[in-house]
């Protein structure tokens, strides 16, 4: 697609200005090298780094934001749903896991719906995180904490996701084990691994919860200050609820999950006993 006239004009101006900088002005202007720990390499790079109307860049960033919610965010919900089956005991969880494996085109669904989006989001996410100059120490506003933790949790997730899948989905012993539940329960007996799972789950819940706030602003779903405040509250609520569900499903594998009768369906008995069986495997 040929650039629009406006793009040409803007590019032309960028180039003209760059030439201007390369010629006399930049040499005579003494501000080129800035000391004091400031890594402005050159003044001119700073000004004209922005490549005007670089639509691919825009599309990539939009896709990054979108993949965080759909499909990765949705997948996290599904993942927690399946894991929560562990609250109903070993058989319930193993059945749920086996049912997932019977999804039609499961390999394709997994590759296109989970692996590819996560790989894309992860690589671009790490690149985005490197463009930040965190300044929580100087400016400790609440939103700055959220911003910084979004990046920290993202980096934690890189390690967590690699480790977690390496220990389960890509582990030959796991794949051939008669009970997925028992296999995971066994792994979680190690306090180190248990702690790692707690950190990973909390990171994922924070990252998705707070990510929804960023998503709402990036896509222009919330514009006014009040709407943004509400979006932020909702995001924090999502973080808390997700964390409780996630950690509880983790505890279920150790037989200590909490399944309050409050939350059971009144007619649950019709579909088999919905009682706490966490410790009975």
């Amino acid at each position: 697609m040929p650039p629009r006239s406006n793009e040409i004009e803007v590019r032309a101006r960028g180039i003209a200005a760059r030439e201007l900088l390369r010629g006399g002005w930049s040499e005579s202007f003494a501000c080129l090298k800035v000391p004091r720990g400031l890594r402005w390499s050159t003044y001119k790079e700073r000004h004209f780094a922005m490549k005007v109307s670089d639509r691919n860049y825009f599309a990539l960033k939009k896709l990054h934001s979108l993949t965080g919610v759909v499909p990765i965010g949705l997948f996290l919900l599904e993942h927690f749903f399946t894991n929560s089956k562990a609250l109903q005991g070993e058989t319930a969880f193993n059945n749920a896991a086996a049912e997932l494996a019977r999804i039609p085109y499961v390999g394709l669904v997994e590759a296109a719906g989970i692996w590819a989006p996560i790989a894309f989001h992860m690589v671009l996410g790490v690149l985005i995180a490197t463009t930040s100059q965190a300044n929580l120490g100087k400016h400790g506003y609440a939103k700055n904490w959220q911003y910084t933790l979004q990046r920290v949790s993202g980096i934690v997730l890189v390690f967590y996701i690699l480790f977690h899948t390496w220990m389960t989905r890509f582990d030959a012993n796991y794949l051939s084990s008669p009970s997925a539940y028992a296999f995971v329960a066994d792994q979680l007996k190690s306090p180190g691994i248990f702690a790692f799972y707690v950190v990973g789950i909390l990171s994922a819940c924070w990252h998705l919860g707070n990510g929804l706030f960023g998503f709402a602003i990036h896509w222009g779903l919330v514009t006014s200050r009040g709407a943004q405040r509400n979006a932020s509250r909702l995001a924090m609520a999502a973080f808390i609820v997700l964390s409780l569900v996630g950690i509880n499903s983790l505890l279920a594998f150790t037989g200590r999950g909490i399944y309050p009768d409050l939350l059971t369906k009144p007619h649950g008995a019709e579909h088999g006993p919905v009682v706490y069986q966490g410790g009975q495997h």
Binding site: M50, S53, N135, Q146, Y147, F213
Partner: peptide
């Protein structure tokens, strides 16, 4: 068009320090 490139609006990370 001008703010949809590299360095434009999508590079804001919503830290919201600016408004403070």
């Amino acid at each position: 068009d001008a703010i949809m490139g590299r360095g434009g609006i999508v590079d804001c990370g919503n830290a919201q320090n600016c408004v403070e």
